[in-house]
Design a protein around this nucleic acid. Structure first.
Lengths: 362, 362
DNA sequence: CTGAAAGCGCTTACAG
DNA sequence: CTGAAAGCGCTTACAG
């Protein structure tokens, strides 16, 4: 193995015949130096193959120019795009990215946050796994590490956040289906456990128009709210049998539940899926059932995935600005890192309905 | 903003009434300490909310337990999966991941490598943008930073590498098409510039059976080699007009070139696309041309993307073990970091033909 | 403009 | 087993 060449500032200073302070000033780009010494130092640095040790610098300055990211799963197109957005603005500002996956497990999320904090990231972007309890995120506040949330909020945690306006987006999607004449519209959603009570109660309250604290709801619950709202606005009744609850972030779960969901009297003539994962599972099930879109069943999805424009007919969907979400979150985080004081901001981005060929008139 | 609580080992030591050395020993988990002092220190640490500063530790130990990754584009499913594989074994071994995108630009790659090196990563995994010249990667060797290459090799750079056995995989795909009776098989490939000469010369040499140094070829060139080999083995002639060269990693480029490619006398009856990007572009073009698969044209792709199993008929493809590639690369890197000396290894993984419905008999 | 000294938060020999 | 001291590679006041 090659000898590790580890020229330090002291080595360069010695070779250039100056003090380490002077060498540091030119190499670190701070303070003033005469052109002459500057040249000497630069020459010495080059010949020694000097590379600054960011660790030492960070230890003193207290900043690492590194951001930490805790995403659900980097393989998921949603997170992949969001992270790309984060990466775009991080890179443009000279920040590196330490990325971890939570796999929607709070234990892993806690572990990741701790790891990133120990590595002294200047700020953190996380997609919280649990929207109710998140002590580790509250603790971050007291340890002074700026935090921005993406996609989900956390009850009682006043920090910057960027997400999609899920209620409006879902309402728009379902309204489109209603406008096309559909009256029995099924919703395929994760709806992982909530502490605001059971699904039936939740729906009852929403239907009756009771105000629900939607802010810290998981996205799929918010999208269910939009589904309900579209029905209410149109004066349509809501049949609880038209709600398919997958219970977890799993395409397979959706795929397995859709067949019996569709095998009921007076089955839905259209489906609304609440995210990419549910959409994929639903599509696989429809294919297996040999149901033609849109002649046998209409469909509007959430999140625009590659395949939705590749298949024939194309799938209409609510497209989230994933890249822009990552970019916006990072910009907000950098502002906080720079010390900008302002009340916590919530940026809700709107999704756009992309019309393709998956909705038939009825 | 909350006061930054920054308890150091010195603070803990003071609170516990011991020396910083002792506090360090229990908090850092090295050396011996009596149970009594251990308890005192732990208690003090807890009440002070002590969190170790990994920077300070790394500065001394010379290791950061962080790996650097330079991938093409995290949004691309190929890289997303590879990175997930990397993340799996990194995490299992307590390593963090600093991830950057090169966007297939060598300038960005050079910049990323420099950034990661300054941040003192313990090792680097990169998908090299240029397989011919890569001084920054050679330099890494002399600075003692272990490096593992994924997907592509670099001429003259003797380091561990994991890739796909592209020639065999492509040969298998094309043989499948030949076996189905196809005689005019088109290949849709990136084939970005090479310095081994022009495409025509390259093909002439390959066809004549001249040995080509395939090791450091870009994957799409290797896959072209497999395409040629399948023809040679079957005793079939090769028509250069059946090679579509996109010239860049762009689905749009492929999409735009496919129509005229298919609008030629005696046009191909089957297509082989050399990666996910080419596959996507080709699919979009075929859809726009209203060509039915497989009745109008047969197709075998490379790399198994989500949509290939979602559309009807499913697309047959050569599936690369992307996750396993990332995992294997990381394991090799960790071995090097642990100091294992061994000649550089090249691990070529084989792709598996996944048969779906995109190939018709002829 | 430049250098000697102190110090960031830890770990590592070295005595005891 | 424990502590005083030195030091990792830088940057930051502070004199001059």
């Amino acid at each position: 193995m090659a000898a590790k060449s580890k020229a330090t500032i002291a080595d360069v200073a010695r070779a250039a015949g100056v003090s380490t302070a002077t060498a540091g000033r030119v190499l670190g780009g701070y303070g003033y130096t005469s052109e002459e010494k500057k040249d000497q130092v630069l020459k010495a640095a080059r010949s020694l193959g000097y590379r600054p040790n960011a660790l030492a610098r960070s230890l003193i300055t207290g900043q690492t120019r590194t951001l930490g990211v805790v995403a659900g799963d980097i393989q998921n197109p949603f997170y992949a795009s969001v992270i790309r957005g984060i990466s775009n603005v991080a890179e443009a500002n000279g920040f590196g990215l330490l990325i971890t996956n939570s796999d929607e497990s709070q234990a892993k999320e806690v572990h990741s946050v701790e790891l990133l904090a120990q590595k002294q990231v200047d700020g953190l972007i996380v997609t919280p796994t649990d929207t109710r309890k998140a002590r580790h995120l509250h603790n971050l506040r007291t340890s002074g590490v700026p935090l921005v949330l993406i996609d989900r909020a956390v009850a009682g945690l006043q920090v910057d956040r960027v997400g999609t306006d899920n209620i409006s987006a879902a309402e728009q999607a379902v309204r489109r289906l209603i406008d096309a004449g559909h009256r029995r519209i099924g919703i395929v959603a994760e709806l992982v456990e909530e502490e605001q009570g059971e699904l039936a109660q939740f729906m009852a309250r929403a239907i009756s128009g009771d105000p629900v604290d939607s802010e810290t709801l998981y996205p799929s619950w918010q999208r269910l709210l939009g589904y309900i709202r579209a029905h209410r606005v149109a004066g349509l009744p809501i049949d609880p049998r038209l709600t398919l609850r997958a219970g977890s972030y799993s395409a397979l779960a959706a795929e397995q539940l859709v067949p019996s969901f569709l095998d009921q009297p007076d089955r839905p003539t259209a489906l609304f899926t609440t995210d990419g994962t549910m959409s994929e599972g639903t599509m696989r099930a429809l294919a297996a059932l040999k149901l033609q879109i849109p002649s046998d069943i209409s469909l509007i999805c959430f999140d625009d995935l590659d395949w939705m424009s590749l298949i024939d007919p194309g799938i209409s969907t609510m497209s989230q600005p994933r890249l822009a979400m990552g970019e916006a979150a990072t910009r907000m985080l950098l502002e906080r890192i720079r010390g900008e004081e302002a009340p916590p901001r919530t940026v809700l981005m709107s999704a756009a309905l992309i019309e393709r060929g998956s909705v038939a008139k009825r």
